[in-house]
Design a protein around this nucleic acid. Structure first.
Lengths: 244, 244
DNA sequence: CGGACGATTGAGTATACTCAAATGTTGTGG
DNA sequence: CCACAACATTTGAGTATACTCAATCGTCCG
């Protein structure tokens, strides 16, 4: 979203390309981060925004009393950190060893006024981020634990490099999944176990999921939604854009 | 949000004014709606977007199996219906007798390319909507019923015409509140009762809430957040958190 | 091999849910 | 203006889902 939006790889104009072409010193600004390292923290001034180059990042918010919510995961090609206010409201952290291009908000803002395409692409990105956040919210507010995890797995699958592959790598740990889905780590774990027992998945490793029955998982994920907003399952005609 | 974003009354440049000034036929496009009437439905083409003139509207999403989520309430001055894709993903409905200016997406788009101020205002609106939606999500994913209702009441209070007044009118019915907060109608009702018993509020009428202790309610609302992101209570001295 | 951390499993419980009934409110027609 | 219907809200009783606390198991590294 502006907040932290995902310019999906394979997207139309390609915000990434537009930025790369339009901004000077683009490649000079790529920085590496270690797992768990913070890119920006809550309250930091919004001087820059970011384009993920490799690895995985997460947007997080902590609360005084220890509660934690993960709002998004960012994969290569995604943009994040564009915020309306003077300070960041979310922290952005590297989940694993990962890299980001650090872009000047100022430079981008100036360019936006001159390049309608970049303008349109960013605006679209921001609005699309909202669409994503709507799905996320619907999921958190109205779904059972198994629906949430199914939704999560199908989302990761649809966004993974090998689109449609039935083995997905989870770079994040269980706590991140739990905090993304609004569940506890124990419930996530139990639900994984339950999926195994039902023959929906196998877990060759803790962080690797083999999806045996994408159809069944997709139905679970879609149970609380209407068909059209679920671009997960294979046949996804990919009309608009694979939202989420 | 772009999706449905709120250009807060009293906002800086005033998206409303910019639009009114910049778009021809503005006043001709104001339409009235009866309570419950739909402005746009899920799947409708995104030809227009809207500026609330009077009354209250809601953005809703229904699911096959009857679940329902309210994503936002729009008050006069708010903009909604701006979406990235070709079709609406949310329905917009009038909550009570209400009025909207219907604006051409096309015309606005064109104007954005020529007027950096409108451009900036809309972009900021979209990003701010995301910020709101982040708070909403954090609330839904990580708060108890009482925290949610307290949050809701303080939000309505802060956005109401008479800012800071301790009597707020709820134009929406309990079901809307429940679906906004991710609760059931019974839980909302019980929590209202509980607030009354604790002396936090009174209910002169079902749809009118008098807030007796805005400080206590504000602490409840903020319990799961950090102080700075709670623009609710006025200058609440803000100790720690009342356990209660 | 052992330590540290992540993940799973177990037992018991709390919060918010479901189903059901009673009560309150609003609007309409006699 | 009152009576009644239709709908909104509250209250009650029982339950289910996901939570908490606690222990065990597994895996990755030194």
């Amino acid at each position: 979203m502006a907040y932290a939006f995902n310019a999906f790889a394979g997207d139309k104009p390609g915000v990434g390309e537009l930025l790369r072409a339009g901004l000077p010193h683009f490649d000079a600004g790529v920085v590496s981060f270690a797992a768990g390292q913070e890119v920006v923290g809550e309250g930091d001034p919004t001087e820059n925004f970011f384009l993920v180059v490799r690895g995985l990042f997460r947007a997080v918010k902590f609360t005084r009393d220890g509660r934690r919510q993960v709002f998004a995961f960012y994969m290569p090609g995604d943009i994040c950190g564009l915020e309306p206010d003077a300070t960041h409201k979310l922290s952005i952290e590297a989940v694993d060893r990962a890299g980001m291009a650090i872009l000047s908000r100022q430079a981008c803002r100036a360019r936006m006024d001159h390049d309608p395409r970049l303008n349109a692409a960013l605006f679209e990105g921001a609005t699309r981020a909202l669409t994503l956040s709507i799905d996320h919210m619907l999921m958190i507010g109205r779904s059972s634990a198994e629906e949430r995890l199914a939704w999560f797995l199908m989302m990761i699958r649809s966004r993974s490099a090998s689109f449609g592959a039935n083995v997905v790598e989870l770079a994040m740990q269980r706590q991140d999944i739990a905090d993304y889905l609004g569940l506890t780590i124990e419930t996530v774990s139990r639900t994984f176990t339950q999926f195994k027992e039902r023959g929906l998945i196998t877990l060759p490793r803790k962080r690797r999921v083999e999806i045996l029955r994408p159809d069944a998982l997709g139905r679970l994920a879609a149970a609380d939604r209407d068909a059209q907003s679920i671009p997960f399952a294979e046949a996804a005609p990919r009309l608009e854009v694979a939202a989420a």
